[in-house]
Computed example of a mutant assay.
Amino acid sequence: MTQPLGGLKVLDFTTLLPGPLATRLLADAGAHVTKIERPGGEDMRRFPPFKGGEPVLYTMLNHGKTVIELDLKDPGAAEQIAPLLDTADILVEQFRPGVMDRLGFGYETLSKKYPALIYCSISGYGQSGPRSQEAGHDLNYQALTGLLAQSYGSAAHASMPPAQIADIGGGSFPAVMNILLAVVERQKTGRGCHLDIAMADAMFTFGLFPYAQHLAGGPIDEAGTGLLTGGSPRYRIYFAADNAPVAVAALEQKFWDRFCDLIELPSSLRNDLKTPDETAARIAGTLSARPSAEWRAVFQAGDCCVTVVEPLSEALSDPHFAGRGLFPATDHPAVASPIARRFRTP
């Protein structure tokens, strides 16, 4: 089958995670990606882990791309890049705002010669605004947008996010989404555009529930007190007798009732809004009385949105995920791609 992005050419000026993952996903759907790296290669080449001397993360993000090492500050760089720009459909860059302009590859400059070029800029805070030149990483973007406040309590109960939410959810995914929208628009108009993707912006999307509270004019649940951040006994992490975490997410009443029946929670504690701390304490005590293997069997049969937390090594061998083709057998480290299988590179 012809891949949906087959024939499209992408010029990739990105490093580390957000941009390289975005262009890897475009490549998964058939686009040809040429990646420009500084002499000696980009920083991710030196990030652990390594296997056989090769950087695993770098390979996951950049396999299948054509990589060219080039000093963009060299006076001859423009001449070397010109043939690539002549045929490029999409350009993705991840420098601080203004850097590509100073190098002579800014959107205003290139769009005059290449009006159909789709130009995507990924940055922490966007191409404009008081923070546009401010350095940052995933944790900083979450901290400044109210998202981290949902999970970070006192020093004794600090909780670090388990995923690169801003890098991937605020950078890679919105970049791919908007590039595809721009491709559709270009099919109608023949013109490209400049996409300004700010990783911090999407953090407000991830904080949808507290933002709704704000819009409603009520108090905002912070620091692990919200319905989905640990404030409710029916949506919380507990621990079994062997210290394995158990994720209880029995939000709907039918699941909550089923869960309460399975653990034989006293009727006086089933109204979790009345005495949430007492209810949570009883649940914690009950779950801690039996090992996770026993609870796994109970909750799988009970179908009540309660799951024993699996370490990654176990999750990778789960027949469900293996059966869905998330981890294809390849001679290189593969990304568990969200691109639908019908569209992916074989």
Rank of each mutant, 00 (worst) to 15 (best):
L103A: 02
G106S: 07
Y119S: 01
S123E: 10
D101W: 08
Y107M: 08
A116W: 15
Y125N: 02
G106M: 06
A116V: 07
Y114N: 01
E108T: 13
Y125C: 02
E108D: 15
K113M: 11
E108K: 14
G126C: 00
T109R: 15
G126Q: 01
I122P: 03
T109C: 09
I122L: 09
K112C: 05
K113Y: 13
Q127M: 10
Q127A: 13
G124L: 06
S111A: 15
L110Q: 10
G104K: 04
S111V: 12
D101F: 04
S121C: 06
Y114T: 01
L110N: 07
G124Q: 14
G124N: 14
T109G: 09
S121A: 15
Y107G: 04
M100G: 06
M100K: 05
Y119G: 01
L103K: 04
M100D: 02
G129K: 10
E108I: 08
C120H: 13
Y114M: 00
F105E: 02
S128T: 15
R102G: 01
T109W: 13
Y119V: 00
S123D: 11
S111I: 06
I118Q: 12
L110D: 14
G124F: 05
K113F: 10
Y125H: 05
L117Y: 10
G104H: 08
L103M: 03
D101K: 14
Y125F: 15
G104P: 01
S111F: 10
G124Y: 14
Y107R: 08
K113G: 14
G129A: 03
P115K: 11
I122M: 08
L110K: 11
C120M: 12
G104Q: 04
G104V: 05
I118N: 10
M100Y: 09
Y119R: 02
L117E: 06
F105W: 05
Y107D: 03
G129N: 03
Y114W: 03
G124P: 09
Y107I: 02
T109D: 11
G129E: 08
G106A: 06
L110Y: 12
L117A: 12
S121V: 07
G126F: 03
L103S: 03
Y114E: 00
M100S: 08
I118T: 04
M100E: 06
F105Y: 15
L103F: 08
S121H: 08
G104S: 06
G129W: 07
P115L: 03
C120W: 13
S121R: 04
A116C: 13
K113E: 12
